[in-house]
Amino acid sequence: MKTLRDVAVGETAKVKKLNGEGAVKRRIMDMGITKGTAVTVRKVAPLGDPIELTVRGYELSIRKDDAALIDVEEE
């Protein structure tokens, strides 16, 4: 299953499912990454982690480990 972690910089993907539970998952959803949302990977931090996303018109940063919890499909 392709996750947000695998999406290349500059690509946009659509969220299929959020795995995980509790605080991290709720936080990710609260920030607007919900089922069906289009997410663009903007860049990777200079040291390789975390990554920067564009979601619902703003910039959001999450760690790669958390990005791996988000199943996506190509737009």
């Binding site: 509790g22 975390p50 703003y58 959001l60 940063s61 999450i62």
Partner: peptide
């Protein structure tokens, strides 16, 4: 406990 979620807005 769980690692603190690092889900952070990068404001304009």
């Amino acid at each position: 406990g769980d690692p603190a979620p690092f889900v952070m807005e990068l404001p304009a």
